[in-house]
Every structure is written in structure tokens, then in C-alpha cells.
Design a protein around this nucleic acid. Structure first.
Lengths: 107, 107
DNA sequence: ATGAAATATAACTATACACTAATATATTAT
DNA sequence: ATAATATATTAGTGTATAGTTATATTTCAT
């Protein structure tokens, strides 16, 4: 059906947590455990969001040793880029979310 | 909370029916009964979608006599404009949806 | 090999949501 | 006033979804 793929992707963006993840990824890649600390939610919760984003091709995943890093994959999706432009940048997000996380575990 | 308003608007766009409505509105305003025929769904269903879109300021409503016409209100929402650019135009949507509707009722 | 850490998957729950049918409200025509 | 048409609201239902806890898998260090 004609608007389905579009709607599926936009549905993913219509979620506060995933928007925050994508906003964080604008600046650099993050591993799952980083996001768990920053977002202050369960690890399976974060993993499931990332899986959905990956299934729609919005993020890439790369395993490096123990850690799996996720990064944006929106070069061919201008309408997503425009949305991400509206989001606060990483530093702002981090300070808004500040849960005095330490980022000690994964280099 | 910081990404909420954005997520609320995007959530509305993450629905096939509402995306189609917005795609139709790119070209011109439509009244509810038109959309009911074109989308081939119940009138309350259409009204509820329109109410949500209006509550988020994405469409305007104007009553003219018996009919209430809805139109786009996205001049100040570039990220929505970008999304709408990706949608098929009105004619394409109409032919994709063709339910041999007649557009006889509302001028 | 074994244990620890990171990630993924499965099972479950509570809530949100899209849709429909039924009803109410509003406007026009007679 | 009354009927007819257009729209909105309410109530109810089935499904989707975001989150959790529990468990499995993967990788590294010892």
C-alpha cells in the first residue's frame, strides 16, 4: 500500500524516547549501555527501540568487541534529516537528561 | 518535557490514513464528506483524524454553510512540509484510492 | 573452561489508538 | 416547525505498542 512504508518510519519518529536517541546520534555513535545510562531506562527497552530503528534502516549497528554501536543512517532520507534538525543537539539533550551518568564502561 | 510536542505531531504523521488526508490537502481544501467518500471509511473515523490534526495545529477548519472544510496549516512547520513533499500528489492519491466516488454533494 | 559484562530475545502487562456503531448537534431547505 | 444533510461526540472493541522482568546469547578476561 502506498503510504505504508512512510507511515512506518514516521511512526518510529513519533516517540519521545526514539526521538531522543536519534537526537543523541546526530553528534556521534553510542553503544547500547551508554544509551541505557543516559536515558535511564532498562537495557531491553533500549535494545528494542534500536532494533525497530534498524529494521526501518534509520540506524546502523556495528559490533566492536563487547559493544554494539549504533549510528544514524539518514543520508538518503531528507525528511528525516529535516526532523532531526529540529531536535536539540547532543549537549543540550545530555544536560536536559542529566542523570549524573558516568560513561565509564565503554570507550 | 523536551521532545514531547515534536513527538506528538510526528505520531500523528505516523498513520497511513492521516498521511493520505494530508497528501490530499496539499492540493486543495476538502470537506469531511469528501474525505469520507475518498477514503472509504466511516464519517466519525474521518472526523476524529481531523480533530487530532487540528488539535496539533496541522490543519485549519472553516465552516461554510453545512460543510466544514479542512486545509493545511504547515507554513511554520518546515519538517512537516518536507514530509508532505515526499507524498504522492492529490491526483495520484485519488487514482490510487479510486472508489469511483462522485464528489456530487459538496460544491 | 569459567565468570563477568554487553546485548538480544521472549513473555507479560498496562496503556494508547484506530476503527465502528450509536447518538447528539448544527445548518439548510421546505 | 420539520425533515434532511453534514459534522461532532460518545461508547465500545480489538489491536498495537512501550515498558518491564526473566532468560538466552555473545564476547572478553582470567
Amino acid at each position: 500500500m502506498f503510504n505504508m512504508e512512510m507511515a512506518e518510519k514516521l511512526k518510529l519518529l513519533g516517540d519521545k524516547t526514539r526521538l531522543t536517541i536519534l537526537g543523541l546520534l546526530k553528534d556521534k555513535e553510542w553503544c547500547v549501555c551508554d544509551l541505557v545510562e543516559i536515558l535511564n531506562m532498562s537495557q531491553p527497552g533500549v535494545s528494542q527501540h534500536l532494533r525497530k530503528l534498524k529494521a526501518q534502516g534509520i540506524v546502523n549497528e556495528t559490533r566492536r568487541g563487547q559493544w554494539v554501536y549504533y549510528s544514524l543512517n539518514v543520508v538518503d532520507k531528507p525528511y528525516i534529516q529535516t526532523i532531526l534538525n529540529e531536535l536539540p543537539d547532543t549537549q543540550t539533550l545530555l544536560s536536559l537528561l542529566k542523570q549524573n551518568y558516568t560513561n565509564a564502561s565503554c570507550p
